[in-house]
Computed example of a mutant assay.
Amino acid sequence: MDIQLSDDQKAIDASVRQICSSFDDDYWTECEEEARFPSEYYALMAQNGWLGITMPEEVGGAGLGVTEAAIMMHAATSSGGGYSAASAIHINLFGPHAIVVHGSPEQKQRWLTPLVKGEQKACFGVTEPDAGLDTTSIKTVATRAPGGYVVHGRKMWTSTAQVADKILLLTRTTPKDQCRKPTQGMTLFYTDLDRSKIEVRRIKKMGRNAVDSNAVFIDGLFIREEDRVGEEGRGFEYLLDSLNPERILVGIEAIGVGRDALNRAAQYAKDRVVFGRPIGQNQGVQHPLAEAWTYLESAYWMLMRAAWLYDNGQSCGAEANAGKFLGARAAFDACTKAVMTHGGMGYAREYQVERLFRESMLPRIAPVTEQLILSFIAERVLGLPKSY
């Protein structure tokens, strides 16, 4: 069994790190404090072709797998940008997957090519305030109209909607109580984010403030028939194709955040001298950091295995979910220990670890909670009865 990156994969890691080195701590601090989208970083990633790493070659993408995307995103988050660096480009890697698989050739050219080039930005409209992770209970409704549909509803936690040109939107076209299964009757669209019909309200939040999260209110949005992805009523089914890649990417992005925090803590422990010796000489400092390394390393390889399974067409639900769980926990632990290693200065923005600590809470909550992951593993792996 060969468990190591190939030369091509190492080149991806090195190339992305080279780009990220153009953006220092001051850049990310400024974007965070000004709640400003990292446009310069986004443009440079687009210019170098990284926005299309998983996209088909016929639309200008690289046609690579989730494994390569995971390597790319780990490099981005571990190079100082944290979750702002990840979330600025994250949707390009998993969000359009339904279009790649179920879109027509015309739709792929019309929609994916501008995304790959960085000419358009997209957001993902799925979660709703009254449904949360119970996606089958969404209330956003698309009603048939001449030439298309009219949509009314609300979406919540829609990232990048402040800067997006397009929205991938999940709606109900058939009421839940009229469907044989609750997962039926939902339809997926990819359409213009028409701000005359869509109000976007920014949510003030704890971290990752360079990339906006929003409450979205849709009132009478007309969507053309040709902007529907696949068949009417099968939208939920189409979204399932992207769930495991999303979990893999979120988990490995978290590990990147944790590794950045850990490296900063280790360097501080070497440099900080108290009572005539570096604090890193004390086992009370060494051991927590060493322990954090072990958790991050083990979670990383669990996620790389999940990515390999996905790219090779094998079942990976348990591995993707477990890896996301472990990656998020390991990142939170590493960031917490990094702040503690810095002592009082860990609370100061100057040393960056407080920013990474705030961001490390995000993957423990989104896009799926730890509790649902454990329920999934209990049911699907251990054979226990469904609890919800």
Rank of each mutant, 00 (worst) to 15 (best):
A122S: 14
P129I: 02
S387I: 14
A265D: 06
K176V: 00
R110Y: 08
L243W: 12
K204D: 12
A269M: 06
K270S: 08
M340S: 12
R172C: 00
R247N: 14
A142D: 02
K155V: 03
W50C: 03
S159D: 03
A210K: 11
A334V: 12
L221S: 09
N48P: 00
M45C: 10
T187I: 04
H74M: 12
S21Q: 13
L193C: 10
G284L: 08
G153D: 01
I198K: 01
M340H: 13
S104W: 05
T369S: 15
E379W: 09
T171Q: 08
N244D: 14
A122L: 15
E253N: 15
S360L: 07
T369A: 08
R195I: 13
G317I: 00
E359H: 03
I279P: 12
D192W: 09
L243A: 11
K166Q: 14
V274M: 11
P288V: 05
M45K: 04
R358W: 13
L112Y: 01
A334S: 12
G60A: 07
I203H: 01
Q283P: 10
Q283D: 07
G383A: 04
G95P: 02
G276T: 07
A75V: 10
I373P: 04
A331P: 05
K204Q: 12
F23T: 00
R264H: 11
A142Y: 01
R172L: 00
R208A: 15
V100R: 05
M73Y: 01
F332W: 13
P105L: 08
I279M: 10
R202W: 10
S159L: 09
H102N: 14
S22Y: 15
S375D: 15
E231C: 08
G276L: 11
P245H: 11
K205F: 01
I279R: 05
